[in-house]
Design a protein around this nucleic acid. Structure first.
Lengths: 196, 196
DNA sequence: CCTACCGATCGGTAGG
DNA sequence: CCTACCGATCGGTAGG
């Protein structure tokens, strides 16, 4: 009986988290109210606090769950035997898949992490910088091995990540563009260029 | 005397607008308060309302001033005799210049326009879509004339614009990277590709 | 441009 | 999970 109660609470908390991600994406974290969230969940606002600690705890859970998935994937690719261009291809593919699988969560993590309370803000920023630094290292190595043109590595990685973040506007409109076309288009454009 | 008074009001209003852009960029529109803005301007909160009508009027002014500059430049490039690849180069250069000249305002226009009140939201969205549609048209024409590879035109333009928007994170950190290096790097990467 | 203050709404708590 | 309600804070107004 105690176990059943726990399971029920967990699934309700997950429902709250999913609805929070959808709400925060639409209205932003600061622009969202716990009353709106309660409406989406189907309870009164004070009842939310039987399942969660605070509004910002929701943001925290969303941001770090997303970050964990990206970090874990990065570690896998890092330890693979692929060349640097292929490694970047893998990263591009994974960002597209994440956006399709968890659009609201990825969007909120990308846009609202700045609203995290002070210590978590710094921690999240660290993880982000680490992610970028590893990709930048790949580009530097790839330039040394003549795999890439001589470009500013950090700027180039930043541009790729920005382009991937921008896919959000596609998923928001629920455009029916296939995952394969997306991947192929972005890999061609970002790695091989659009000029003939 | 009436003229002097008017000039004074105009310059105070411009000060408020500049400070509002800086504040909205840092905290977001919903996360910013008129008390914080008043502190930045150096008056009490109610005094702001001698110069402005409302908080959302500030957002409106910032967003549409930025949009006007981009639209005017687009029109110039559209009527130029340049080829499509060179036209896109001009757009890339202008986005970089705008970001350098008016970082706060461009950032706010890009991120907070969704908070515009209903009729203005739709108007802004229209202008944005028109901007994207014209660039997409160039890409379609360029593909037909074998200037570009066969790519999804809308997706390709969206990717370029996303990459340009992402430059924000560079200017936020006040990185001392030259305008010329930025332009060259982005044009190479986005038009010619990074692979050797 | 200020002081004083408004109605509304916020995140969250008490108590059952 | 609800009703009742809190202190704080919000955008904005009145009046001088």
């Amino acid at each position: 009986m105690a176990r059943i109660k726990t399971n029920k609470n967990v699934s309700k908390k997950e429902l709250i988290l999913r609805k929070a991600a959808a709400l925060f994406r639409e209205r932003g974290f600061a622009g969202s109210t716990m009353r709106e969230l309660a409406d989406l969940v189907g309870v009164e606002a004070p009842s939310l606090y039987n399942h969660i600690g605070s509004k910002s705890e929701l943001l925290q859970a969303i941001c770090f769950q997303v970050a964990d998935l990206f970090n874990r994937h990065l570690e896998e690719v890092k330890q693979s035997p692929l060349g640097y261009s292929k490694k970047l291809e893998e990263i591009i593919r994974f960002h597209i898949h994440m956006m399709q699988a968890s659009f609201d969560e990825v969007f909120v993590a990308n846009h609202e992490w700045k609203q995290l309370p002070a210590p978590l803000f710094a921690e999240y920023l660290d993880q982000r910088r680490n992610y970028e630094a590893i990709l930048t290292g790949w580009l530097e190595e790839g330039i040394r091995k003549k795999e890439f043109k001589k470009l500013n590595p950090r700027l180039t990685i930043l541009t790729i990540l920005s382009a991937l973040r921008g896919l959000e506007s596609l998923f928001r409109n629920k455009k029916n563009i296939s995952s394969t076309e997306l991947e192929n288009n972005l890999i061609t454009q970002l790695l091989h260029g659009i000029n003939k």
